[in-house]
Design a protein around this nucleic acid. Structure first.
Lengths: 147, 147
DNA sequence: CTAGTTAGACAGATTATCTGTCTAATATGG
DNA sequence: CCATATTAGACAGATAATCTGTCTAACTAG
């Protein structure tokens, strides 16, 4: 059974799992020879939508101020991983998009995430991992103001 | 069903849930009038074991270097939330312990976490929340080198 | 068309984090 | 018991990340 006292550790458990996944993906990227990106930059890059995202949205999703997000996007742009184009639907905004230079980065990171999830599935079973995912997806409805 | 593509978002989901919980707890502390602590400091403080923890252990659990952890502990000590005492079992080490000044902090944060978890249980059901917790606890065996 | 809001740029300061080095204490293997 | 290796944490210095506050241009709603 899971009593109240133990429940307080849920935050730690979420942190540990998230951090383990993130670190494995980032380490794989570095091991692949991609060393001109930091973990903070990668966190922002990982949140860029297929068609491009606004800095404000990235900031909201990464839970940092838009100034911080803009700073990281600036560096990603300098490294050539993203480009900023005017948003056709809003003259104030610019869309941040991944460039082709980011392809390898994305591929390597995703491959490692798949590998980690396979290990997780081995450990707790496919079904429980699926349940974990679905519960978190449902929780997002009340924990994430963005989307 | 949860296909492979969707699985890649698990990292984001873990992040969102963790961050939501952490932010709610921290906001509650600030709302209670406790403003002389930062989120980073609180993260370290939340990992101090009942009998005290070594800086090295806190660093490992918070996934930062021991220099970073030492820096945050130093500030927590200056604010009076923790004290450092020699570790009787190891002459090199010092144990970081919460002081009585931290009591209110801990109480307010824990109360808010309980509140958030009650909301989560309302949203996905007690059973699924319990499953979430148990799956994450099992995953910790392979994702957390510490403990 | 006016008032309010939003996107992002700019400036400046603070906070958090890292790498590298050092000393003292502990643990280990012969 | 001693030599060696490891560990805990302090110290120094540099860098990275983050924040608050302000400003302009562009959108939105009444």
């Amino acid at each position: 059974m899971t009593d109240r006292g133990q429940r307080l550790e849920l935050g730690i458990l979420l942190f540990v799992a998230n951090r383990a996944l993130e670190q494995r993906a980032f380490d794989a990227v570095v091991a692949d020879g991609i060393t001109d990106i930091t973990l903070s930059q990668a966190r922002v890059a990982a949140r860029i939508a297929p068609g491009g995202s606004r800095v404000s949205d990235l900031a909201a999703q990464a839970r940092v101020t838009k100034q911080s997000a803009a700073f990281l996007v600036e560096q990603l742009e300098a490294s050539g991983y993203v480009e900023r184009v005017p948003d056709p639907t809003d003259g104030r905004a610019r869309l941040v998009r991944l460039t082709s230079r980011a392809d390898r980065l994305v591929r390597v990171a995703n491959a490692e995430v798949e590998r980690v999830l396979a290990e997780w599935a081995d450990h707790v079973g496919e079904e429980r991992l699926t349940q974990l995912h679905e519960t978190l997806r449902d929780l997002r409805e009340i924990t994430d103001p963005w989307r």
